[in-house]
Each structure stands twice: as C-alpha cells, then as structure tokens.
Design a protein around this nucleic acid. Structure first.
Lengths: 197, 197
DNA sequence: CGCTTTTGACTGATTAGTTAGTAAGTGCAC
DNA sequence: GTGCACTTACTAACTAATCAGTCAAAAGCG
C-alpha cells in the first residue's frame, strides 16, 4: 500500500550517491559534500541519516560487499568441474557489468591497513569466497572428479589469481586481465586438479 | 668530499619522510603537515623543495618505483628455468624486507584511476616487468628448455599472480600469500612451460 | 658578505560536524 | 473531520579545525 512509485528510502539513495561520488573522485577525495551533491541534498541531510563519515563509509562497505556476494551466489549444478568454472567466471566477472563495483571495492580495500572495521569486513568476505572454493574442490575430490590435492593451497592460489586480475582490470583499465585469469585458472585446474585418469 | 656523515640531501630526506608518513596514515590522510612532522621541519620547508603537493607525490612515486626496479634487477644466470624462478622470487619478495615498499606501492596504485601521471608511471613499470618475464620465457623457448607456448599469455598470467599475491600480502597482512604464489607459479610453469620431453 | 635553507605567521579555501528551525506527514482523541 | 502531539526529512547558517600554499624575515654557513 506504500508509495513505491518514485523515490526509494533515503538510506539506499545515499548509498547509491556514495557509489557515484567514490567512482568519480576516489576515496582520498571523497567528502560528505560530494556525496551530498550526488544525493541532491545538503550535507546536513547526510548527517541526519549517518552521524559520522565513518558510520556512512562502514555502512557503504557493507552495502558493496553484499552486492559482491550477490554476484557470486552459487548456482544449482552438481558437477564439481562445472560448478568451479561457473564460480570462477562469476569472480572474474564481465567488467562492463560491474566495473563500478570493482572500482569501489579496490578503493575501499586500499583503506584496510588503516581501518580495523574495514579489515574485518574484507577478511570475512574473503573467508566466505575461499570457503565456496574449498567446498567445490572438496566435493570434486570426494566424487573422484578431482585429484586428491591440497584443497587450501588450490583455493588460495585461485583467490590470488582472482584478486590480481580484478586489481589489474581496474588499475590498468584492462578488460583482458579477467579473460587471461579465466584462461589461466582453467589451465591451472586442468594441470593440478584433473590429471587425466 | 661532501659531508656524508649524518644528514643526506634534503630531497632524499623528504622522500624518506613521505615514506614514513604514507605508511602511518595512508594516502587519503597524507598531508604536507604529516610529511613535515616526519621530516622534522616546517611545512614551508617542504614547499621550498617541492612547489606543490602533486610535484612531491609524483617525485615520490618515481622514488618508490626506482626502488622496486632495484629489487628485481636481473641476475647473471643463463639457465632460463633458474632465471625465471629467481625473477619470480624477487617479485614475490620476502615481506619482512620490503613491507614498506609493498604498502607504499599499493597506496599509490589506488590513486591510478584519478591521476594520469601515476597511471602512466605504473603502466611503464608494469611493461618493464612484463618485458623481463617475456624475455626469459622467449629465451627458454629458443633454447628448447620451455615448450613453444603463448609467451604473452604466460607473462600476463604470472603478472596477475604477482599482483594478486602482493596485494593480498598487504591487505590481509598475510605473509603466506607470497609463498603460496611462489608455489603456484612454480606449478604453473611446470605444467605449461615444461611438459617433460 | 652572500647564498641557501628554514621558520613563523599568515591566507583563503575546505573539511566534518552542529544547531535551530521548517515543512510535511502520521496517529489518535474527541 | 478537526485539532494536537509527534516523527521524518530536511535546510541554511554556522563552528572549529585543517588544508595547501605564500611571504618576509631570520638563521646558518662558506
């Protein structure tokens, strides 16, 4: 019965404004004023919803990490080989679709060494992704599709590949990095997980 | 004949002060005042040596990229397999030795999307490293030690691995990332470059 | 002395955050 | 259905601090 026609709730609008401001100016030059400009309201309006800049940015990090989790939600596939490929494809996502998310995550991540809350949230997120990888690999080993490898090592190796590719995709504005990483991951999986039987 | 006993030239001292200030506060909170504090002089003293903050930071980026190049200076080894391993070991350096350099490079790199000069310098640096990798691989192929693979692809794959590991080493303060990357690189090289003959 | 280097005091702009006040809407008594 | 209490969502104007950068004067030194 509520009016859902035009403007959504302010919190979400502010998160989207922060998104745009971050993309345009970068973390170092991200100010309440610039977020307010994107929001189309005053800086005081921002402070009405978020007491401090830190509160806003922490909420924003939760916002984008939730979005990230959404992009890698597991699909219904029982074949481990296919599931692993699908998961990697989602992690090494088409840049045109989620370029903003990639940039936002890189910017926020660069603050990790100086912000405990950021670090904890990124660590948690990382553990979640690594858990998904480990689960798929373990499943593959149990069903005999994959060799009996060091699951932790392979999962970590793939995480490194994913992080490297995503970083380079943003920093060098290089769309090929993600494609190269996809290919490399496939080669690595073929060489260490599926040594033909 | 110059006095090399205590204080070196001001430029170098300011670069080292910037190093410390960047490590302590991060790029977003890096101010002339904080660099001056580390320098032990006034902010005006900084401005005497560098007209603008941008001049200083561009000089600083050159400073750290030169340091990075120094850490990967090629060694005298003719065996391509050994040369590649040595080069990768230098790129995936012991974090305790160069942790500061790793952090500084990550911080500066996060500014690349918003600073043309930074981008150009990082691009140049990246091309240099990739050139070193390609040279070693090509040499290996020509001498028959490596298979006739897609040199560009393999070099790029290794770059992604290196960037991912270095990033994760800083962000998650995880020393294992570099070791894992070393092992993964070795596995990848063994699987794609040296398919036993 | 003369040159380099540094300082202190400054400027104008910008920062995050506060304040008092306003306007629109909601729930409810009567 | 009108009046009243309260909430939500904001604005304009402000504060105190900090920012990069300037400049005249002074200190240090060969």
């Amino acid at each position: 019965m509520a009016d859902t026609s035009t403007e959504a709730d302010p919190d979400e609008e502010i998160m989207r404004a922060t998104y745009r401001a971050l993309r345009e100016h970068g973390y170092a030059d991200l100010t309440i004023q610039r977020i307010a400009d994107e929001y189309g309201k005053s800086t005081a309006a921002i402070h009405y919803h978020y007491d401090t800049k830190d509160d806003l940015l922490t909420a924003f990090l939760d916002f984008i990490l939730d979005q990230f989790k959404d992009t890698i939600h597991e699909v219904e596939t029982t074949d481990p080989e296919q599931r692993l490929e699908l998961l990697l494809n989602k992690l090494l996502v088409d840049p045109t679709d989620h370029q903003d998310l990639l940039i936002a995550m890189l910017e926020m991540r660069s603050q990790v060494p100086y912000n405990d809350q950021f670090r904890e949230r990124f660590r948690e997120n990382d553990e979640y992704v690594q858990y998904l990888l480990r689960t798929v690999i373990d499943h593959g080993i149990k069903t005999g599709v994959f060799d009996d490898v060091d699951t932790d090592h392979v999962a970590q190796a793939l995480m490194i590949l994913v992080d490297g590719a995503r970083t380079r995709a943003v920093v060098f504005d290089d769309e090929d990095s993600l494609e190269t990483a996809r290919r490399t991951a496939a080669e690595y999986v073929a060489a260490t997980l599926v040594t033909d039987n």
